[in-house]
Every structure is written in structure tokens, then in C-alpha cells.
Design a binder for these strands. Sequence first.
DNA 1: GCCGTTTTCGGCCCGACTGTTTTCAGTCG
Length: 575
Amino acid sequence: MARPNEEVEALLREYADLIAITGGDAFKVRAYEKAARAIGGHPEDISRLDADGLRDIPNVGRSIAEKVVEYLRTGTVSVVEERRSRIPAGVRELVAIPTLGPKKALRLYEDLHISSVDELAAAIEADALHDLKGFGEKTQENILHGIALLRQAGGRIPLHLAMDAAEDIVAELSEVKGCRRCTYAGSLRRMKETIGDIDILVAAARSAPFMDALAALPSTAEVIAHGAKKRSVRTTKGVQVDLRVLPPVSWGAGLQYFTGSKAHNIRTRTIAVRQGLKLSEYGLFDVDSGTSVASRSEEDVYARLGLPWIPPTLREDRGEIDAALRGELPELVTERDIRGDLHTHTDLTDGLAPLETMVTAAAERGYAYYAVTDHAPNLYMQRMTDEKILAQRERVRALDGAHRGMRLLHGTELNIDPEGEVDWPDEFLAGFDLCVASLHSHFDLDRKAMTRRLVRACENPHVHVIGHPTTRLIGKRPEVDADWDEVFAACARTGTALEINSQPDRLDLCDEDILRARQYGAKFAVNTDAHSVLHLACLRFGVGTAQRGWLTPKDVVNTWPLSRLRRFLRKDGSV
DNA sequence: GCCGTTTTCGGCCCGACTGTTTTCAGTCG
């Protein structure tokens, strides 16, 4: 979503890279990186802020606020332009190569005038680096390897693939003799939508058996690093896995440390330092005496820092530390809170499983209610008709309550056309218990038209949920361009829920959009958009995303009892 | 460049691994 916050975030990140490459102060680099993150994640549109308003954003001070104001006014920042003129854009691309940082990038540019990834690959092939200081044979090999990976994967993998791989590895290592604890940590535990690498932690007295077991797994393609305390491998699917084995007494500190995020850890370490303590993966230590004061559990570590345990999905330095200090951490929505799925398909349209199969599987998940929402006629390839959907309604009514008492809602997934209209006239729509409405085409309308389209859908009294609101596909298709502040406000005003679509290639809304929509008081529905029984289990990713958006059960309509949900579906403001 | 119960200067998280400059710089998380 191209809004000023993201533009400025990208600009500040670029400036930070350029400072690093030209050998600037490392702390200055960090300051720009921190400010970039803060602005990118700021819920308010920064173009509506003046310099003082900008300085209220954490990690934005006088100098950066001035640069942002300059950018918003003129579209450029003179000092950034000045650095750009000294360092070609291609040199900055070099630091995206694993094992190649700003120092090596600058040497390549200054000594050999290499200013793109392609030029670097060619130079290595031509053996042009042979007497360049710091670029031995092994280093060149690593760079070539890194370039290949960069071109192949773009670096990150989808959450569900990482989860599958991690759960397999955890299961294997848990079987190794001497294993006291084993789990995954890192961005996977925080449920980020894409994962750079998988962090696995083991608590055991001896590390070697686990290091060897990891290297010996059939899924392991190559060993990248093999120290005594850390082992890194690459799987056959190209995912990097880092294994750390910790003494059992350090389990809590290790888990906290390797869960991150980096920004969250910097905050917790800073709190430790102020108390005369030092926090590492081995424990929380008194600086003077060197004695450990906490390490066995995450709860112990946080408690000794004066904090309650903070759920991993919140650990992004987006205000969770301050909320914890105030005792105001949200009671996050969990998978157990979800009473039903409000967006699912059957083989009447493009689902794989028949109605009865989906309903049975849903009942086995313990749901109190479940909505069947097959596609409406305007998604022409699905060939929906009035007769087919009415016949399905009869079958749904017949199954209502037949599985563990689970109540069934008959719904549909409508198509929002470019004008904001949906399939079927009002009187026909009134026959549904629930309507999801989604964008399925015309993704390239301009912002004004797209905003109007979505707002009109919200204003339709028969539309209860906006499905996968931005229609992004992670790594494939960007979010559609709309004034999301206006859309989110319309959702709150009209009592239309925003979907958090749990499909791992969607996760739409994403965490940052949720944080923004929440400011307007909008409600949400965490749905799977299941097209198969297996898809029902994707709910965990949607719930993880909702947690990353700080949502509580009261924000999520499908945690509510059916009676309350039905009042919400009346759209008359009675909830 | 940011920040402040260490408050306008001086610190900014900390440790691991790799390759090579053989005692440490660069990179990573």
C-alpha cells in the first residue's frame, strides 16, 4: 500500500543504507533505521502531521522530522539526493546479498567500480577480485552462493511453509536422547507473514547430538555454519535453519532472546541495563556480581525486569513494552475464542469438498456456528445461479444443528463491481443470513474510484464482511490502491466487519492495516476462506495476524455468541 | 541522529561465526 508512511519508510531505509555504505556513524545508521520502522508502522497518515506532530513519533527527532517535512513538501530530500549522487543505486542492491555488507560493497565499488549484482557476478566469474583485500576464495564463493539465493527466493518464505518445516524439525529433535525442551522461536513464533529463517531451540546438557541430528535430517541440504553452540543448515527447499542448544537453566532467557524481535530485545536489554543488569541468551545477570538473577522461564525474565510476560505476537516494539509497564497489555484473541468461521466454500463453486464434509469437519473443530459462503453469479466461471444457491440453502437448513449442535448460517461471497455494486437485488440478498463481499477483478482502479467502490460496498445493508479487503497476494500482487483510512472509517460507521483472511498467501488484512483499522473502531472477522477441509486449519495464521494487530475477542465478531453475532448482522447499530 | 529516573552530553544490546587482515573486521540476527 503506497501511502506516505511507507514511502518515507523506504526513503529513510535507503538513506540509512547509503550512510552505512559511505562509512558513516553506525549509530546514525541505526537511528535512521529505527525512525523508518516507526514511521512505516505509525497508524496515522504522516502527511497530515507537521514537524511537531512528527516528533511525537518515537525515534523521530528534530533532524528526521525536518527531512520528512521536506519530502512531503517537495518530494525529495536534498541530503538523500546528495548521497544518491555519490553511490549508484546498484551498490545499495549489493548489501541485499547475504554475507555481503556495506563495507565490502563500498570496497567493490571504489576499487573495481562494481555497481550492480550482475556486474559483481560477472567480475567473480572473470576472477577480477583475486587481489582485492578481504575477498578470498571462500568469500567469493559465498557471494556467488548468496546471489543465486537472492535471485531464486527473494529471501523470505511464506509463514505456513516455515511452520511446516519447523514443526517437523522440532518433532525430530525432540526424539533425540537428552532433549529436555525443543521449540521454534524467531519471527515464526511471532507469526510474521513471511519468515527469513527458522530458529530452533533445544534445552539439553550436551549440544553435539542435536547438531549432528540436524545435519543428518533428510531435509538438510547443506551445512552453512557449524560451531559448538550454533549450527546453521539450509534445507532442500532453500530455507535456512539455525539451531541453538542451551543449558536447561537458560531456557527462558534463550527463548526470549531468540524470539525477538530485534527491536523488542533492544528495549528489554535497555531496561535491564538501567537496573544494573545484563540480559543475554544465557540469562539475566547482575552486572557487578555476575550472578544470574533469572533465566529459567520467559516469565521469570520478564518479571525480574518488572514486566508481565508479553505474548510473542506483540514483540515488535510497537508499544508493547509501554503497555506492559502500564499493565495495559491487550487480552489477545486466541484460536480457542473463535466460535465459528464466516467465510468458507464448498464444491458447489470452487471448493474441493461437499457441503456435508465441510460441515462435519467444522463441527469437529468445536465451532458453535459456521457460515457457508459460496461464490455469487458475477464470478462467471463459478456458474452460480439462483436455483443452485436456493437448493443449497435447503440442504444447509436440513444440516443446521445436526452436527454437535453447530448452527449453520447460509451465506455467499459477493463480488464488488467497479461501481461498488454487488450480485443480486436487495430482496434476494435479504434471504441470506450473512454476506461477505470481496474484490475479484478491476484491481487497477485509481485510488479515488477504488475508495468509493469499497465504501459503497460497506454502505450496502446486506454486506456484513469485506473479504480479503486489499486483495494482495504475498510476494505476487500488491494491495489495491485505496484511501484505507476512509474505508476503515466507513466500516466502523456502517457496522461492516473487515476480514482477516487466514490463507497464508493472503493474510489480508495484514497486521499493520489491522492496527490502523482498529483506531477507527472497526470490527473484524477472522475467517479461513477455506476451499478444502485442510484450509480450516489455516485459522491459526489469521489469529496470529489478528494478535499482531493487538485484537481482543471484543474486536472480532466471530468470537461472539451467535445471538450477539445475529444482532451485528442486522446492521442497525444495535451491537 | 535519538534520547533523558544516567536529562543537553555521552551512550547507543550483545554474542556468534567466518574468513583471513593470524588477532580481528565484517556480517548476521
